[in-house]
Design a protein around this nucleic acid. Sequence first.
DNA 1: TATCATTATGTTAGCGCTAACAAATCAAGG
DNA 2: CCTTGATTTGTTAGCGCTAACATAATGATA
Lengths: 341, 341
Amino acid sequence: MRKRRGAGRPTIADVADKAGVSTITVSRALRDPAKVSAPLRERIDAAVRKLDYVPHSHASALASSRSNIVGVIVPSLTNNVFADTLRAIYDELEHGPLQVQLGNSRYVAEEEERLIRIFLGQRPAALIVAGGDQTPAARALLESADCPVVQVMEVDPDPIDMMVGFSHFEGGRAAGYHLLQRGYRNIGFIGARMDPRSRRRMEGFAEALRSAGRYDSELFMTTTRSSSTSLGAELIATLRAKCPDIEAVFCNNDDMALGVLFGCQHAGLRVPEDLGIIGFNDLEMMAAACPSLTSIRTNRYGIGKTAVDMIRARLDGEEPENRVVDLGFQLQERQSTARRA
Amino acid sequence: MRKRRGAGRPTIADVADKAGVSTITVSRALRDPAKVSAPLRERIDAAVRKLDYVPHSHASALASSRSNIVGVIVPSLTNNVFADTLRAIYDELEHGPLQVQLGNSRYVAEEEERLIRIFLGQRPAALIVAGGDQTPAARALLESADCPVVQVMEVDPDPIDMMVGFSHFEGGRAAGYHLLQRGYRNIGFIGARMDPRSRRRMEGFAEALRSAGRYDSELFMTTTRSSSTSLGAELIATLRAKCPDIEAVFCNNDDMALGVLFGCQHAGLRVPEDLGIIGFNDLEMMAAACPSLTSIRTNRYGIGKTAVDMIRARLDGEEPENRVVDLGFQLQERQSTARRA
DNA sequence: TATCATTATGTTAGCGCTAACAAATCAAGG
DNA sequence: CCTTGATTTGTTAGCGCTAACATAATGATA
């Protein structure tokens, strides 16, 4: 006699037996209750509860060749920027059947490609990837994926499928204009990691300075090290040692900006009088800091929410009116750049 | 003629055809290459590459009634504390076949129970859950799960299965002794969210103060609002308005501690002279702050790494020598409590 | 070389679910 | 009463993979 495998949890057949219907009816009652008459539905629900039945998602995925997994690939788990977007995705998906599967590419394009490959192996319901800088192979994989794909955090005229984010270039440019407007002259840039998005911020910033004839590459300091508060403090010290006449600095993110503030405080510099500081993202702490820190506010939660909305619409068969949604940014002006111009 | 479903990507049968072997041989070559002779292995590998074959994980999970999913349930995605542990889990799991599936319980026990139910429906390879405060039903579900279960972030003599973390009570107590030792007398506590772990920190802290006869409930201020830097600034202002003679404060986490520092700076108070501050977790920014902030350092990355090690050992059939691993904590003494006693 | 243990590969039958088709039931109109 | 069309439920086969058993090839031993 052959041993039965996995004879553990109740299956849809057990529920069907108990309710006195066929398995397909149970399947329908669970997936689309409207397709089953009220009395049967009640009997099935009762049987489900009594048996504590949980559908076997793998079997379902295999039979329908369509899983309930939304693959999400982000470059960092510790970066607050992605945490907010992720939180939105989880919040939005909570009350549906869709499940998030999260991959961490650590800012490595090849790792991202590997993750895309793995995720596609699961026939995901949809895919969300950060940014628009995939390798050609990764892009090809995504283009041929037969599920909705949303690129988040950036906008680009040529999305793989759909896209929601904002322009990092314009954000950087706005930061530049703000410092110029505030009367700062010797304006620098501090950037860590320098992933493609940070690079675009820097380029927009440089363009703003250039347009006013105030661009000086000596005042731009970047590193591939990952950003942190202490790194911000370290870099501003180095930069000031090299260029003591620097008056203001744009940091590629808020952690770095906070570090610059701490660095100034340790060095006895007054902010904004001796040095103006502007960050990027407007994390919660920026408003609380002393002095409060100017930043470019981005709608990270909205990006996650919009991404899910787009996916849901597509899965419902609708075609989104715009394949690229620009959620923009706002300059949050605070004490750290409030120099009497 | 019946339409074939899902006639999309290549299957194991396609690979088997191309390599001139049976499907089970391909299956074995992919899962355990040592079971297949070298020449066949090479032919199979070549076929896999040529067809760009990716195994269908759902089919595999169904057939073996064992998925490659490690379910992880954390109470928050934005809390840096969990981000570090998560990062470790992802780092450790990267080069194996195991996939992480992440759930966010938002500090709601019922939501955690729901997630456990969903995850168990996928027959996970293992489960990692935060803390030891599951509902009785959730605990029962986990106890009957036929996979390794690791509770992280805490230690408890009675784990569901395995556990790795540290004692929040002892951490809080250490913070209390430190402030007493530094000569502070009117010592307060500020706590947001007040999840079970924060509560245990507070209890340990209170116990330390009580042992020195310096416990005063008037100086303990808690809220269920979620922690943030601005909340820290707000609460210290409220607490000082109520008890102007407060000399030092223990914050239930570092975000709150940073907020208290900012609050003091805005109010013109000197730290540590007018107010001593100690946080919990020792996030990166604590060392960079000005003044640098004392904190209880916890090994969050190590917790994630150890959890995966324990899971892997169990999956390899080994029994861990200790079902509960205490990774401890260290007091990081910095300027914010450096009062000349 | 015959015999047995070992290793390498193949055959068969599902895992639990759902798509596609089929049949039964029902409502309304002539 | 029978049509007709819509609605509800059931039957059958198969999604892609692997467990269990079966067999073939290989090696070791006397």
